[in-house]
Design a binder for these strands. Structure first.
Lengths: 345, 345
DNA sequence: ATGAAAGCGCTAACAG
DNA sequence: CTGTTAGCGCTTTCAT
């Protein structure tokens, strides 16, 4: 209906001419900035609508150096060769939710691959701010963005950059404690931890909370490291390690990565271990693989939707000049999805 | 190293001053446009590098109305409330692959939610082109983009818009035939089809190819419709329908949506039907749910990576002024992943 | 071979 | 209350 007769984009001048005012008045009317007579404002709005006018985001961005776009880098995906489908629905949910939240706030969300290793498309450095998910230790992406003066918030700490405080995230230590308590309450005697090799805070904080607990109750700590890229096979490899271990298979395992947990369980079951009777398993990240495993694996739902929402909110807060007195680190509540893999009676 | 001493962004003027030339020369040198003495060009490059200069994408975009960003709308996700995690890894792979491909070609990739139903962030209409995945019948998004003169390519046809030819996609009919042949070759006598309710070409073309085959071999067509949003429960509902049907459960089922297939199989198995002995099941879209089902479900791998790559390529082709003599519809080869659910001996 | 100057469409001082 | 004007950083004629 209405709008565009000619192909040419309708500009602020067109609206000004039609409404019989200056472009300034149009700008003010539409942005609610200056002081404009109500009547005039109404007329301008009317004309603008009729013409289907909407301010050119580029021109506006040039003026106000605000493009209206947020960049998103998901670091764990950068190590993958090609955004493979390996049980990474957490990130799909995260990216989708971030996009939705950004859109709702009038921003676009641009997915970007590690801007340090590839020639950076200029546009990547023109965004208003960045969200960087699961930064690695001393993350070079953070350096790059700092160098360009681009605001960013991280999801998860940069474990080697204590001075960097613009991050938010799940309370990984709390999650670890929750899992351990759950396992203990169901009769676990020895609990092992399986973590990934990426140098991010999820791995680091989980391990340290686990070791802390082990030390506290005099339990020997059993920590297995397995590359995130290895998928289910990696989980099976860890299972072999446990099977061959002199201390045998522990009677409870907290395995951070969902796909490791799935492979681990499969291998143990194949070898005659019963889940949850002989061994209980909990995954640190819920995914389809944990939900669909046999039996389904108790997992922590990382609630990427709320994390993404919080990240966008915090970034936008950072962008607005209103100086946030203090860092309100939104506490994100993850949920333990209890399933059959820990259903001891 | 090098670069940014002051906080301020380094502009073309800085480079010009440092190199002792005009901004014009800098622009020409860096873009290889005008005629510049080799010596000068070299010096400019040197200075630019030393200063860490890179042209502001926004300013450049304003001049050349080329922002360097592609928009991506995934229609099936718009109907979902919030990009839920329901076995949609196809789209994650698609979005990720599209982003990577775009980045490799010097473009950014912006995820956008249905720009017709929400207030359009101005930036959405400033992108250079759009990819719209699985448009619905007479898709209003296509209207909107056309109205704004924004180039687009669709992945999948708009089934009610025959005149629109800028689309590409898997050969859905071929996939259907492949599946039917596979099932027939394994002794299927009666094959049923389960499709979704979205008015997109995947559903439409699959059904029509199926009906065509049924008519050809005198088989009665059995088509079940189930809402895409219903997930595994929807699959179970279809199973109930089949169980209650006077003709009974068919001995082979082609179920487009992976999560329907998973639920369907679960319910049938619960009711004592053996897969693949009594009934074989094939899903039209591989996903974690089909891979992890018990037994694993034979599925078509939609190879979103190659589709995304082709979509980006075609859109960029469209954007370049080089008039493409003819529409080369890249044929995308989907792969039938054969698993236990059709492993009749 | 190089540079001056005119904008791209918009916002924000600053006048009137 | 409204309009004039000066750019934002860059590309691109058109002179020189």
């Amino acid at each position: 209906m209405s709008t565009a007769s000619g192909r040419r984009k309708v500009t602020i001048h067109d609206v000004a001419r039609q409404a019989g005012v200056s472009i300034t008045t149009v700008s003010h009317s539409l942005n609610g900035k200056g002081v404009v007579a109500e009547e005039t404002r109404a007329r301008v709005h009317e004309v603008a609508t009729k013409l289907g006018y909407s301010a050119d985001a580029i021109a506006r961005g040039l003026r106000s150096s605000r493009l209206g776009v947020l960049g998103l880098v998901i670091r764990p995906l950068d190590s993958l060769d090609s955004y493979q489908p390996i049980g990474v629905d957490y990130f799909m949910r995260f990216a989708g939710a971030a996009a939705v939240e950004a859109l709702d706030r009038g921003f676009g969300l641009m997915l970007v691959r590690d801007p340090t290793t590839h020639s950076v498309p200029a546009i990547a450095l023109a965004v208003d701010g960045f969200i960087i998910s699961d930064p690695i230790a001393n993350d070079p992406v953070i350096d790059l963005l700092n160098r360009h003066g681009i605001p960013l918030v991280a999801v998860g700490r940069d474990i080697d950059r204590p001075e960097f405080t613009d991050w938010l995230g799940e309370d990984t230590s709390q999650d670890t404690r929750t899992v351990i308590e759950h396992l203990s309450a169901h009769g676990a005697r020895s609990i092992a931890l399986v973590r990934g090799t990426d140098a991010n805070s999820w791995n680091a904080d989980s391990e340290s909370a686990y070791r802390h607990w082990a030390a506290e109750c005099g339990q020997p700590a059993a920590v297995y490291l397995e590359d995130e890229r290895s998928g289910e096979d990696g989980g099976r490899a860890v299972a072999e390690l446990m099977l061959a271990s002199p201390t045998g298979v522990p009677d409870a395992i907290y395995c951070l990565t969902g796909r490791h947990a799935a492979g681990l369980q499969k291998r143990l079951v194949e070898q005659g271990h019963r889940v949850p009777i002989d061994v209980m398993i909990v995954a640190g990240a819920d995914s389809e693989q944990t939900r669909n495993a046999t039996p389904p694996i108790t997992s922590i739902d990382l609630t990427p939707e709320s994390t993404a929402k919080a990240a966008v909110t915090q970034l936008l807060q950072l962008l607005s000049d209103t100086p946030t007195a203090e860092h309100v680190r939104p506490s994100i509540t993850n949920i333990l999805r209890i399933r059959e893999s820990t259903a001891r009676v």
